[in-house]
Simulated assay, not measured.
Amino acid sequence: MLTERFFPEIGGVEKHSLEISKRIVRDGHKLTIITRKTPKSANKYEKIDGINIVRIAANGYLPTWLNLSKFCMNFSRYDIIHCHDFVTFYWIFPFIFFNRNLYITFHGFERYPIPKIYIILRKIAEIFTKRNICVGRFISSYYKTKPNYITYGGIDLNEKENLITTKSNFNTQNLKKLLFIGRLEKDTGILYYIEALKILKFEYRLNLELDICGEGRLENMIRSYSKKNNLTVNFNGFISNLGKFFEKSGIIFSSSYLSIIESLYRKKLVISVYHNKLKEDYLKLSPFSKYIIVCKNSIEIAESIFNIINNNIIYEEKIEQGYLFAKQHTWNDVYKLYKELWKL
């Protein structure tokens, strides 16, 4: 299995590939991960929970091909080769004729508008792989991909977590504590959420507290803006276990599939924002769109929060339905899709 970044790195693709890997090994299969070497994971070879990991210096395709040449010459001994996203497909492109048992998962999007070159590169990867999984229905619309399966990721369903999530702490006081999950970049909508806090403070006379779990290039800007407007914002960096933050928060700001499903499972109201047509479709074409609140700007976010705090009872059914949806979308269910894809 090839993926640009892998555990201990944090992110959507990293989480997705790790959860599938754990289940592959648990089923008794031998698995090797090829991934990029990073400062957090400098060891070239290591084994974690039965998963063999090979980390390479992937800096440009030619150096990557040279790094992988000896490894790829033995491709024929693998029953399945799975690429996460088209970038890793091109890591092995010169060697694909050694083994045609190639599969791919298409995750996310690069930017909007989508440059045509990315549409072409993805289409070539689709043609040269047997079957594919798309993370989100929007991919088929924007990249003209013909998905064999569509997924949105999943959650871990276990007794400890189940005991926590079945106890809803949805009340007015709890709703005044907000949680943002994601990178501090423009595409996650963080600036809209921060501006909504300002609107709530000065126009609605609501002084709410926001926990930010994530890092990114906009952190200094957000710190300055929050200080200037006397907003209560706590910066926590990237957090691997969000349990305690979920417990004390009533409303979650997130626009990524995994964080949304996790939040629904935790019986939280989710507010997602979009800033272009692609992101709007990314959210609204998802099967859980009816269980979240989708906004197009900071004004709508502020209005939604004000309505939630003042009429929280009418949102309880949405929360319960979202929880029931999330319970039916576990990583075991996602793994079943992969087994069907590979015909295991």
Rank of each mutant, 00 (worst) to 15 (best):
A196I: 00
N158A: 00
I92E: 01
K296S: 14
L62I: 15
I92L: 12
E110W: 03
L285G: 00
W65K: 09
I222G: 09
Q328E: 15
Y90I: 10
L18N: 01
S69Y: 12
S254L: 08
K198G: 01
E4A: 11
D281I: 00
I313T: 09
Y143F: 15
N162G: 00
N169I: 13
F235V: 12
Y323L: 10
N169S: 14
I308E: 11
L231Y: 11
I212R: 04
I181R: 03
A58T: 02
I133N: 02
N230H: 13
L269S: 10
G189T: 05
K267L: 08
K336L: 15
L337A: 05
V270E: 08
E19Q: 14
I92G: 01
P287A: 09
L2T: 05
T129M: 04
S21F: 11
K186V: 12
P113S: 13
T151G: 05
K248S: 14
Y274S: 05
G154K: 03
F7A: 07
K248H: 12
S304P: 06
D333K: 13
L231E: 11
E46W: 03
I24C: 03
L191D: 14
I299K: 13
V135P: 05
S41A: 15
I104T: 01
K267V: 05
F89S: 02
E9G: 04
T32I: 13
Y193W: 02
L31I: 10
M221S: 14
G216L: 08
Q321F: 06
F238W: 11
I24N: 03
